[in-house]
Nucleic acid binder design. Sequence first.
DNA 1: CATATGAGTGAGTGCACACTCACAAACACA
DNA 2: TGTGTTTGTGAGTGTGCACTCACTCATATG
Lengths: 180, 180
Amino acid sequence: MRSTAEARRAVVLNAAVSAFARTGFHATPVTAVAAAAGISEAYVFRLFAGKLGLFVAAAEACFERIVAALEVGAERAGDAGPDEILDAMGRAYAELIADRDLLLLQVQAQAVTDVPEIAAAVRAGYKRVATFVQNRSGAGDAQVQQFFAYGQLCHLIVTAGLEQVPEPWARALTAGIDHP
Amino acid sequence: MRSTAEARRAVVLNAAVSAFARTGFHATPVTAVAAAAGISEAYVFRLFAGKLGLFVAAAEACFERIVAALEVGAERAGDAGPDEILDAMGRAYAELIADRDLLLLQVQAQAVTDVPEIAAAVRAGYKRVATFVQNRSGAGDAQVQQFFAYGQLCHLIVTAGLEQVPEPWARALTAGIDHP
DNA sequence: CATATGAGTGAGTGCACACTCACAAACACA
DNA sequence: TGTGTTTGTGAGTGTGCACTCACTCATATG
């Protein structure tokens, strides 16, 4: 026993988040995740319920990390007004997705929602994030909606690489968005 | 010669938009597109430069239809102020994506931007849409940015099926979004 | 009628990949 | 030391799919 199964699961999960984020569910072979985790493909299948189970677990981990980051960010704003808290959360989110993995995995998951299990995971994930934002910030519906709208815009900016485009139309879309 | 190659190409393109929208690039076999178009798989490969060429063509057609719809929508607002024109465009977009194909294909394309040709097509597509919205509406950068942010939020709502969720967090995200 | 041109396909080929299973090695404990 | 349990793997197996190619048939034209 080199390691415990639970510890291995965590390592595999990290590898899965990165791998699925880059190439998505269907284009990511389980071999790639196994190699990144430093174990055999066969053992990945023993640790998780198929490729689908692995992807769902990765998505859940992704949303969990996002909530944690927002929590930390909100802490910085203390118990200021909704505007300040949302602002602090936005900055925390911007820092979190600097490595792009968590952002890209959300995009990948949204693209595979024709698989019911994944759709359920996405809904559950956004439920956790949205209810947390609502409760912790105390902001109204419109403000919360705006928060998520600009979050989704951020997804487009990154996937399309709009930060690199100097033309006016791209500058309009990226204006004021933090991208460290 | 039952038909001209050009006519077939158009039929295949329609089938490709629908098929790729539902199951995405990697999970959609060319056989599925061929079957939907009523021709053989081999002929699809003669009409388009591989599966990738077919997907890129479908994405381009998608953005072309979006611009056309926004054009029609803007026409309804005539030469009113930027707010009214953007509003009319928003309604036109909501009508257009009632069948979900064009919306889902954008999501699918964004998820496969690790393929350079697709990333280029996505950038080119949004360039067309964004410059059109900018020029035709005469709105400022912030307003245009907001227009796209809520458009992207719309993508999340549809892929996650949030219209069906009655809980408060989902109501906050979907409030005021047209979904015919 | 002869022949060239373009539409359209059936039958393959080769490969990547999800998933399995029999088996080995490390550890726990009596 | 013997026995059971858990970690871990190599070597398959079957299948789905992108892409090819030799071929047929319809039409147009001289």
